[in-house]
Write a protein that binds this DNA or RNA. Structure first.
Lengths: 350, 350
DNA sequence: GAGACCCTTGCATACGAATGCATCCGGAGT
DNA sequence: ACTCCGGATGCATTCGTATGCAAGGGTCTC
């Protein structure tokens, strides 16, 4: 049994003070004199003492751990978000306990496990929570923030980008580019992001007098998106442009059209996506898309969560952050466009 | 203060037994009669009781948490591994606390934080540990397994694929395909995987009487790999084939050659990678590569870790698991090849 | 039928740190 | 010189569960 941790008591003995004194030295805001602190720190260093987080959490009721529920990581947007979230939280002294919500696994069970671990907060990335689950968290006094997913429910905070606006702007861009037959491989219509982007796109089209020629639910899955693309384009009247509910599907669509149907992009058909994942800038795809402000979304998520952890009485709030159109070469566009953003620092590391 | 957790004492009161009885019912191997268990479970369900993991960990000394150190997540191999590792661990009742080792962040500090959280084990994915850090973990009695990274050190367990064999086989495949001028964009030579693949490739070449025309360290980074590729191919004698230290760099190399230099693949130059990430199967790249057995690596990693958690006396062991060549179209190959593996289930989900 | 043995159960304590309360000290104010 | 005040410190308790120990009850064996 090599688990001979050095405890506050050991440090106290060596420093000639009480265990309380040691605790106070290591507790921000604890009252201890200069000399005591010095003695304690010296003893602690000599012994290699570090406070036991578990014991501390048990008594304070705060674990400084945030539960992160995330679905699949094959869409690059999420590893990226995970990385940023974890970094932002680490900077504030929190750590991330990850829970993967494979569709077969039970989100309810995950919530229970998070509660068991006394997480101080929960971030649900791309996952919705039933009212019942939301209630359970609320009852336990654990704030929840939904990341990149909304809720009809009013009681949870959420952070998304302005999906309506983004999809609308993409629609207008396509129309301005001279496309008339426009189709969609939508995001999963069972999700709020999928529905919002769908509605935004349709609204955007009608705002300039166009409408949607065809639409298939791609469910945010590569294989579904690819087969949807083939179905859309294999007929006698293929669309001139396809809006994809996210970049991840857009890549699948582009591969399917280019390699299965031998079409050229944007020669035969224009493709636009949504997210602006790093891969969208790769020359093989060079995807015109809507940039979700990942950095800002992460910051807002963390800020919101922290605020609610520090003050339980603050009310849940819904944030829809502004993104921007990123014009590349996968879609034919108008000669000029109102917001010719530069794309240079689009993916600068934090 | 809505944090009114229901404790074992509450359950005990309602069930008319002692707190010990409750504890025993919820402890695997605890001795409790059928009826007691039934009463306790009924009371627990009625009250919504779940044991407090923190308190349990405090006394048992095991947190059922595994610390996972991972570097960048932009190489798809790692999100994939993270997902599988987390799933495998969840299945065994463990959870994953993630630590991101940005190069600016201090691995030593991370280790300390993991020790603070009493993690039962550490998985270091693509990260090496100094002897000093390894000692610190060992002293704390916490087993460490290196995932996809080796160590000259003998005291840590490690799980990799057979990098030497894989790189050698790729070399032989290229030579068999009729390439004579063969170059390399190596993995980071500061890492064991980078060095092993480099050596394996060179050995593989010489085993069939060929040798390496040029080699540049791509450091596992896209931008470095791209510029390396341009430097290699911009001269008067461009190579006929390039081996890349991983798929992630291979994609960058392909993009650079195709779009910056206007070369065709595999017409002008053959490209092979290493890893077989899902994206390698995408038609835009369709990369011939070496498949690292991700599933087996994850299983072995978890098994090794569990074995050492359950029995501290087991000795560290190094595993190099067999992979296999996955032939696609990014490289010209011989008409026949000894192991024409089917590639169908290469990326089946677990 | 009595002793041996196993299975249950409750009591008390331990895990390691935080914190309310009481005490003690020194310094400042009058 | 005496009181008052605030900061520093120790004592004891607390968080919620696991577990060693001893006692109780039932069963089996000879």
């Amino acid at each position: 049994m090599p688990r001979d941790r050095v405890t506050a008591m050991d440090v106290a003995a060596r420093a000639g003070v009480s265990q309380s004194a040691v605790s106070r030295v290591f507790t921000p805001g604890g009252s201890a004199s200069k000399e005591t602190a010095a003695k304690v720190r010296a003893a602690a260093d000599a012994l290699g003492y570090r406070p036991n987080v578990l014991a501390r959490s048990l008594i304070t009721g705060r674990s400084r751990i945030i539960g992160l529920v995330v679905a699949y990581l094959d869409n690059q947007f999420y590893p990226d978000a995970l990385e940023r979230l974890s970094a932002a939280l680490q900077k504030r002294g929190y750590h991330v306990l990850v829970f993967l919500a494979n569709n077969r696994s039970d989100v309810s069970e995950m919530i229970d496990q998070m509660l068991d671990h006394q997480v101080d907060g929960i971030i649900a990335a791309s996952v919705s929570l039933s009212n019942q689950l939301a209630d359970r968290c609320e009852a336990a006094g654990i704030p929840v923030v939904l990341f990149n997913r909304g809720q009809d429910n009013w009681r949870l905070s959420e952070v998304t980008s302005d999906n309506l606006q983004g999809a609308a702007e993409l629609a207008q861009y396509l129309v301005a580019g001279g496309h008339t037959r426009i189709a969609q491989v939508s995001g999963w219509l069972g999700s709020t992001t999928g529905r919002d982007r769908d509605r935004g796109f349709r609204d955007g089209l009608s705002s300039v007098g166009a409408d949607l020629a065809a639409s298939i639910d791609g469910r945010y899955a590569r294989s579904e998106a690819a087969s949807a693309a083939r179905r859309l384009c294999d007929g006698p009247h293929p669309p001139e442009a396809i809006f994809c509910g996210n970049d991840h599907m857009a890549f699948a669509v582009m591969d399917a059209l280019r390699f299965d149907l031998g079409m050229s992009i944007p020669g035969d058909v224009s493709i636009v996506g949504f997210d602006d994942v790093p891969m969208a800038a790769w020359k093989s795809y060079d995807l015109t898309t809507w940039s979700q402000p990942a950095r800002a979304m992460v910051d807002t998520t963390v800020d919101t969560l922290m605020a609610r952890i520090d003050d339980r009485t603050t009310h849940p709030k819904k944030h829809a952050l502004p993104g921007r159109l990123v014009i590349r070469t996968s879609a034919r566009g108008p000669a000029t466009w109102p917001r010719p953003d530069k794309q240079g620092d689009s993916h600068a590391r934090l």
